[in-house]
Computed example of a mutant assay.
Amino acid sequence: MSFTLATWNINSVRLRAALVSRLLTEEAPDILCLQECKSPVEKIPAETFHALGYTHMIARGQKGYNGVAILSKLPIEDAGDKDFASLGHARHVAGRLENGVTIHNFYVPAGGDVPDRERNVKFGQKLDYLTEMRDWFRAERPEKAILVGDLNIAPREDDVWSHKQLLKVVSHTPIEVEHLGQAQEAGDWVDVTRAHIPEGQLYSWWSYRSPNWDAADKGRRLDHIWATADIAGAAHSSRVLRAVRGWEQPSDHAPVFASFDL
């Protein structure tokens, strides 16, 4: 089975349904994983996506916040979800393809603005979420799996526009990078994007606060595609669709793609 998969923090699937439809029409990935849908499942415009050939949807949602969805042209069954850190948030959902590959779609908490769990409850929740991901991967030892999503951490120095200036900024602090690295190691996950694009600055998110995001280019790579080591070698053609960030009324994230021959 060969398929192309994409991940995109859409920042409201209902508000940006037309952008999702445009991506599905122009790029036609076999599977699109969305985060921050900000919608109850029953109000996701599934019929719109169904008409474009995405006849399968697995989702977890809540009103106004969080939310994850997997849209697929390929048959896929619901493989459950986990409430990491017991937050009661819709931040994870999994689907299983007919070839046995499990796709995990994550929306890791952003963590607020202050990188100190004593002063900022949200930062502590983020670290706890990552710790529980690590422990789950150690216990489950995932195989034939792909993990995608907005992990809200840019781990490498060249995943941010300025390593030095962002060391104390949430999403690139050493403690976050360490926690994400432990989760990745626990599941024997391979960072597919960086396996294919090993050198140079690479971003998937640019702040709405920047008046000219493209020229300023103060980005971060917050969106990821990982695969377990047993199938990572089957991945190819990774890319970030930077141009999508420039569409009208866009999300502040750009979609990330990878293809697999399994």
Rank of each mutant, 00 (worst) to 15 (best):
E143Q: 14
F123T: 08
R239A: 09
L87K: 05
D158K: 05
A232W: 05
V114T: 15
H196S: 04
V13W: 08
L74F: 10
D230V: 10
I10Y: 00
I103H: 04
R138I: 13
P174D: 09
A28R: 11
R209M: 06
A79V: 09
Q201C: 02
Q62D: 12
A85R: 06
I103Y: 01
V256Q: 05
Q184Y: 01
A243I: 14
I70T: 13
H179P: 00
H50G: 15
E77D: 11
Q249E: 09
T48V: 15
A110N: 15
Y65S: 06
R138K: 15
P174Q: 00
E248A: 12
R96F: 06
L180N: 01
S204F: 07
S2E: 10
N11T: 06
P115Y: 08
D128Y: 01
R138P: 08
C37H: 04
E42S: 08
T173F: 03
L202M: 10
Y208P: 11
A90K: 09
F49M: 09
E77K: 13
Y107P: 03
T102P: 02
D188Q: 12
H224S: 07
P174L: 03
A69E: 03
H50L: 06
R96I: 15
V256D: 02
N152L: 07
D159H: 10
G233I: 10
W136S: 08
V256N: 03
E176D: 10
E185T: 14
W247N: 03
I225E: 01
M133Y: 08
D217H: 13
T102H: 02
F106K: 00
R209V: 13
H89Q: 14
E27Y: 12
R221E: 05
L74C: 09
V68C: 09
A90G: 13
F123Y: 14
R96G: 07
Q201N: 09
L32P: 10
F49Y: 15
A139K: 10
L71F: 14
E98P: 05
L87P: 08
S207H: 13
Q184A: 11
P174R: 00
I76L: 10
A183C: 02
Q249G: 05
E248I: 11
V121N: 07
G112C: 07
S86A: 13
L147N: 00
P45M: 00
V41N: 05
E27Q: 13
Q125R: 12
I76R: 07
K122S: 03
F84G: 07
P115S: 01
L151F: 11
S207I: 12
H56A: 00
G219H: 09
Q249D: 13
D30I: 09
V121T: 15
S86D: 11
D30M: 01
P29L: 00
I153P: 06
H50D: 11
G246A: 09
H89Y: 10
W136C: 06
E157N: 13
I146V: 15
H253Q: 02
L97C: 05
L23W: 14
K122T: 12
D135C: 03
P142S: 04
L97M: 05
S162D: 10
T173A: 00
A186V: 14
G112S: 05
R117T: 13
W8C: 01
T193G: 01
I225Q: 02
G61L: 02
C33Y: 04
D217E: 12
N11K: 04
